[in-house]
Simulated scan of single mutants.
Amino acid sequence: MALSARKPAIPALTGVRFLAALSVALFHLSFQLAASLNIPTGHFFDNAGEPVELFFMLSGFILTYTHSDVSTVNRAATSQFYLSRFAKIYPMYLLGWLVFAPLIYINLVSLHGPGPGTYARLAFYGVMSITLMQAWIPATANAWNTPGWSLSAEAFFYALFPLLFASLKHRTVRALIALIALCWLISVVPTIVVSMLPKPFSTVQWPQDAANFMPVLRIAEFIAGICMGRLYLDRSSERSWAFDLAAALALVLAVAAMLFSNYLHARVVLFPVFFALLYCLARASGPLSRLLGSKVMVLLGEASFAFYILHVPLFKYAKIAVPSVATSPLQFSIFLVALTGVSIFCYLSIEKPLCAYLRRAYRTPPVARVPATLQR
């Protein structure tokens, strides 16, 4: 099998990843700062973590765009796909896991004291998270390095991608649009159900955690991204400034929804807004797409995975060393700049070379192309 030619990058989609990662970081880190300054935040701390939904859609889109040779028949391409995903996410994820390990040990000992129960919890949380299974149990989803739950979900999505892609590869535009609408409905139903639960279920955390973190309840966002990729591939040569304007409008609407909508309304609104933002950026030719596709923003976007994985543990260490970093605007800004620098360093010196090494070391040798008749 000859692997598909490498498709040209879509720089604006790389740049927008940093904006999404920054939103999630501010959601996790800036509550004390906002409170100390009496900044009116609206619903920001209800909704600013929602760009994870954008990550899931973008993941489905990019995989569809770059792995069009994957199928349930073409085992070589499928094996190469799984290797590629492992090489891309796991080295940096493992670094985040290791950096967080002393913090969770200290936390568990302070809560429960040293002893067999504490070490059993530590081992259980550690195994669940290092095997990317933590999101399947609400109690473990955020137990080890909070952002890691989304990688647990992504691992599930990656496992199903060849099957999902094969089933959607030849769908008509009308069928894809209908499926996107169905994915929108499926994505918000768990949150709606949780909001309607009677007491005592409405006062406990696990139903909300299940709705937020359970991979099977988040896969609709990934499937919508695959559908978006199929729509884009049908018309990818058509670009215009009108899409740039639409992307700018979608970006404004996303920020407004996160600031001014309650959590339930934001969950309903942000799915189509994020979908429109990504699709329009991919098709755009204008100032916003040029800005997000600039060299600086592309570098930040490429480093956004390290930024995303490391922001929680590094901030915890920063607070241990300098407690006022959580409430001082200057110190908090310095931390964000330092975090960005560390993330770029990790991308250039760890993530990128390790990913390239693993892909070279375990590359599947080319084999004869599978006849089209056997792929039906």
Rank of each mutant, 00 (worst) to 15 (best):
G229K: 04
G229S: 12
R230S: 07
R230F: 07
R230N: 14
R230E: 10
L231Q: 04
L231W: 03
L231C: 04
L231P: 03
L231F: 02
L231M: 13
L231T: 09
Y232C: 07
Y232P: 05
Y232H: 15
L233I: 08
L233E: 11
L233N: 10
D234G: 15
D234L: 15
D234K: 15
R235C: 08
R235W: 10
R235T: 14
R235V: 12
S237R: 15
S237N: 13
E238M: 11
E238W: 11
E238V: 11
R239F: 02
W241H: 14
W241G: 12
A242N: 09
F243T: 01
F243Y: 15
D244I: 08
D244W: 08
L245A: 15
L245E: 05
L245Q: 12
L245V: 13
L245Y: 09
L245M: 13
A246E: 03
A247Q: 02
A247V: 05
A247I: 03
A248S: 14
A248L: 10
A248D: 02
L249Q: 00
L249Y: 02
L249I: 13
L251S: 04
V252E: 05
L253Q: 08
L253N: 02
L253A: 09
L253T: 07
A254K: 00
A254L: 06
A254Q: 01
V255N: 01
V255F: 06
A256T: 08
A257V: 10
A257Y: 04
A257P: 07
M258H: 03
M258V: 11
M258F: 05
L259Y: 13
L259Q: 10
L259W: 12
L259G: 10
F260M: 10
F260W: 12
S261C: 13
S261R: 04
S261Q: 11
S261D: 12
S261E: 12
S261V: 07
N262P: 14
Y263F: 14
Y263K: 11
L264Y: 08
L264V: 15
L264K: 04
H265M: 13
H265L: 14
H265W: 13
A266H: 09
R267I: 08
V268P: 00
V268A: 13
V269A: 09
V269T: 05
L270G: 01
P272Q: 07
P272V: 08
P272R: 05
P272K: 06
P272I: 02
P272E: 03
V273E: 03
V273H: 00
F274L: 04
F274R: 01
F274G: 00
F274Y: 15
F275G: 00
F275R: 00
F275D: 03
A276F: 04
A276C: 13
L277G: 00
L277D: 02
L278W: 03
Y279E: 01
